Computed example of a mutant assay.
Amino acid sequence: MKIPQLAGTVLIGMASLGVFISCTSDAKKTNGQKKTVTANGDTVVTEEPEVGTVREAVDTAKYNALLVKLANGDTTGNWPVKNQPTPLAGAILPFKRVVVYYGNLHSKKMGALGEYAPKEMWSRLNAEIKNWEKADPSTPVQAGVHYIASVASGTPGKDGKYINRMGDKQIDSVLKIAKMHNAIVFLDIQVGLSTIKAELPRLEKYLQMPHVHLGIDPEFSMKDGSKPGKKIGTYDAADINYCSEYLANLVKKYNLPPKIFTIHRFTRKMVTNYKNIKLRPEVQVVMHMDGWGEPELKKGTYRHFIFPEPVQFTGFKLFYKNDLKKAPNRLMTPEELLKLKPQPIYIQYQ
Rank of each mutant, 00 (worst) to 15 (best):
K278R: 11
A143N: 01
Y274A: 14
V151N: 12
V283I: 09
S123G: 14
P310G: 11
H213D: 13
G73C: 11
K161M: 11
H181D: 15
V285C: 06
S123F: 10
Y346N: 03
D136A: 13
P210N: 08
S153Y: 05
P258Y: 06
G233I: 12
D236W: 05
H304D: 15
T333I: 05
L113M: 10
Y242N: 08
S25N: 12
I216S: 09
N255G: 03
D224R: 07
D59Q: 08
A237C: 06
A178Q: 04
F261T: 01
A143L: 01
A7I: 07
P210I: 02
P49I: 07
A178W: 02
K119Y: 06
Y206A: 12
I306R: 06
D42N: 14
N322P: 00
Y320V: 00
N78R: 09
R55H: 06
V174N: 03
L279A: 09
S173H: 04
I240M: 10
M14W: 00
G215L: 04
H264P: 04
F95Q: 11
N83Y: 09
I196M: 15
K298N: 11
K227M: 10
S16W: 02
S22M: 07
P201E: 08
G111M: 14
H146E: 15
G73F: 08
V285E: 13
L105H: 02
M180E: 15
S173D: 14
T272K: 10
R303C: 00
M289Q: 15
K109G: 10
D42H: 13
L11I: 15
I240G: 08
Q312T: 02
L340G: 03
Y242S: 08
T46S: 12
Y246R: 06
K169F: 05
W292Y: 13
K34S: 12
Y147V: 12
R330S: 11
P228M: 03
T314K: 04
E282F: 02
K35G: 05
S226H: 08
V212W: 02
M332Y: 03
G300K: 10
G18P: 09
M289S: 14
M289V: 02
P308Q: 04
A248H: 05
